[in-house]
């Protein structure tokens, strides 16, 4: 393998420095003693302590997680159904409209999605709260799920499902026993994507929430609008930490599985 040229080394170093230094500074100053987040005055974990005392913040975190779990689970079911329809159902009445509605939310500015959903909820007289946020999040994240799952389904070998049918499965059994286990990784990553999108969303949640349900991003936004606070740094650090551990462990697990599979395949070839 060729060595990287100096230019490439420099561009990669600067690029990743740009991506990571802001977050590292953020994390560093969550352990700062002083309330000023720009002057280092000694190591302390007191902001984490204060965060744990902040009832409103914890309440918001709980609402956010609840919303994210429920909406991403419904979105995964609906998104997988939609993906299956898109890839397998051939032609049906209004297919173009359907695929348009799957792709449009991906590129729709959040302010528009939020505004339109709010007007709907007011129009039908639905009280705004956890339910309305869940409905809103489910709607846009199901589209992401369906894109992830349909790209997996597109490369899925149709003959596997036909083989299952040939061996006596009904259509539903073939899906449950063969298709679903095989596309499971894509469905899981669809769920994870929906989950993080929901955790992360500020704009749509701001439009569709009511006074009873404040999510974490709304809380953070209103706090940081006023300025920088070490408590928010502490909260951010926790969130970054969770995501980092999650993403890294997920990729290690899948990498190990891949390495194992490669090795076994090579052994199988050698055995002949």
């Amino acid at each position: 393998m060729k060595r990287l040229s100096a230019f490439n080394v420099v561009s990669l170093t600067l690029g990743f420095a740009f991506l990571y230094i802001p977050m590292l500074i953020l994390i560093l100053f969550s352990f700062n003693e002083s309330k000023l987040v720009t002057v280092w005055s000694g190591f302390s974990t007191k902001w984490y302590g204060e965060l744990m005392q902040n009832e409103a913040m914890l309440q918001a975190a709980w609402v956010t997680i609840k919303v994210a779990v429920i909406s991403s689970s419904i979105a995964t079911v609906l998104g997988t159904m939609a993906a299956y329809v898109m890839v397998r159902s051939g032609r049906f009445l209004g297919r173009t409209l359907f695929s348009g509605m799957i792709y449009a939310p991906l590129v729709m500015p959040e302010v528009i999605t939020g505004l339109s959903l709010l007007l709907l909820f007011i129009g039908i007289g639905l009280d705004r709260g956890v339910l309305t946020i869940v409905l809103a999040h489910t709607t846009f994240s199901m589209c992401y799920v369906s894109v992830v799952v349909s790209s997996r389904l597109a490369t899925f070998d149709m003959s596997l499902e036909e083989a299952a049918r040939d061996l006596g499965c009904s259509q539903a059994q073939a899906f449950r026993l063969v298709t679903l286990p095989i596309i499971a990784p894509a469905v899981v990553s669809g769920w994870l994507l929906a989950f993080t999108l929901s955790l992360d969303d500020l704009v749509i949640a701001s439009f569709t929430t009511g006074p009873a349900a404040t999510t974490l991003p709304i809380k953070i936004f209103s706090a940081v609008r006023l300025g920088v606070s070490p408590e928010i740094n502490a909260l951010s650090t926790i969130m970054i930490g969770i995501v980092t551990v999650g993403v890294i462990s997920a990729s290690l697990v899948s990498k190990r599985a891949l390495v194992k599979q490669r090795r076994e395949e090579q052994e199988a070839v050698r055995a002949t």
Binding site: D157, L160, E162, A163, R165, D166, L167, G168, P181, I182
Partner: peptide
């Protein structure tokens, strides 16, 4: 197809990988 006394061996073999 699931009720025919006919079975098929697929070109890709279509073995269930899981």
């Amino acid at each position: 197809p699931n009720q025919r006394a006919v079975n098929m061996m697929f070109q890709s073999y279509a073995l269930f990988p899981h």
